[in-house]
């Protein structure tokens, strides 16, 4: 609350009105590294969004793939001599460059989608558990215990059996696996926070519960939550890769980065490195950029680092 009222020192506030958003932007821009991360991430996101228009090949169309072009080295030409596979091809003759662009789309949707949904569900339940206490707390926390003990592979198998195989269902499976982490972490922090004076003050003012939860309690639980959330995007992408590795991930004809990596995994020993190396690099760059942004975001948003 006090954050918004205080003017940031050194800001020329003559003709511009200081708003929380502008302040946020200027603070964010302080870190060159975070800006670089943001730029890279935007570039990657654009690449993913525009893939159908800029990719040399539609890697999801079986009609354009030819196994006779399979496992070609980077820089090879295709059988009809009409295109060059700059990053080589996989076992199905899929152009790796196109595969990576399309795969980015799926990995970003799966990673970000599942992390955001899991975060919202988990954080809300965690806050509620800490604030309400008593039976609500016990019920939610035992649900967390139950959830955490189910191996991701079993959850994924069950969802596969009940709902069939699709990208949406992979997201659902990851949300089901991950929400409990958020709930557990948020509850831990919130338990400490709710005993602090500002919550007592808010309660004395008879503010509505949702307001206390989301306007007062939540911002103060944010730092660990953001740490977890930025990591969980990466973890969700890696989990999707692992599910694909175990044969439970996205459909094989629409590979994500993770599935490309796990397909290429089997070729690592035989020296056909490009099948999993380039998707691996793409994954790494994506995750590093998300984390550069996330790390700095956490510092900027943290009310307790504002001094």
């Amino acid at each position: 609350m006090s954050v918004a009222l205080r003017a940031a020192p050194g800001t020329p506030a003559k003709d511009r009105v200081e708003t929380p958003f502008r302040r946020f932007v200027s603070e964010f821009a302080e870190s060159k590294l975070a800006l670089l991360g943001l730029a890279v991430f935007v570039a990657i996101a654009l690449l993913a969004v525009l893939a159908p228009w800029i990719a040399p090949q539609n890697p999801y169309d079986l009609a354009v793939l030819d196994i006779m072009d399979g496992r070609l080295e980077p820089g090879s030409r295709n059988g009809d001599d009409t295109m060059t596979y700059w990053l080589g091809t996989d076992d199905q003759g899929r152009d790796m460059l196109s595969g990576i662009m399309y795969g980015l789309r799926i990995s970003l949707v799966v990673g970000a989608g599942s992390a955001v949904i899991a975060c919202i569900v988990g954080a809300s339940l965690g806050l509620l558990a800490a604030y309400a206490g008593g039976r609500t707390d016990s019920a939610i926390m035992r649900l967390v215990d139950l959830q955490l003990s189910f191996p991701a592979i079993l959850v994924a198998l069950m969802i596969l059996a009940f709902l069939g195989k699709s990208i949406t269902n992979v997201v659902i499976a990851i949300v089901v696996v991950e929400w409990a982490y958020y709930a557990r972490t948020v509850r831990g922090t919130a338990l400490v926070e709710r005993r602090r004076e500002y919550i007592e003050a808010a309660e004395c003012l008879a503010l509505p519960t949702h307001r206390i939860l989301f306007r007062h309690l939540l911002p103060n639980c944010l730092p660990p939550l953001i740490v977890i959330a930025t990591m969980q995007v990466a973890r969700a992408i890696a989990l999707e890769a692992t599910l694909s590795f175990l044969g439970l991930g996205v459909p094989i004809t629409e590979p994500s980065l993770g599935l490309l990596i796990s397909n290429g995994y089997e070729y690592m020993l035989s020296g056909k490195y490009w099948i999993s190396f380039y998707p691996g690099i793409a994954l790494l760059v994506t995750i590093v950029s998300i984390n550069l942004v996330g790390d700095h975001l956490r510092d900027v948003l943290n009310p307790r680092l504002k001094k």
């Binding site: 079986l62 009609a63 196994i67 076992d91 198998l157 094989i252 004809t253």
Partner: peptide, 28 residues
């Protein structure tokens, strides 16, 4: 197994039988 299925999918698609390939674990 899944690689073979995809290759068959390519070949069937080329004669006009558009093929979707779904691979899953033996258990399911």
């Amino acid at each position: 197994d899944a690689r073979i299925a995809q290759a068959v999918g390519q070949m069937w698609t080329r004669i006009g039988v558009r093929t979707a390939v779904e691979a899953q674990t033996w258990a399911t």
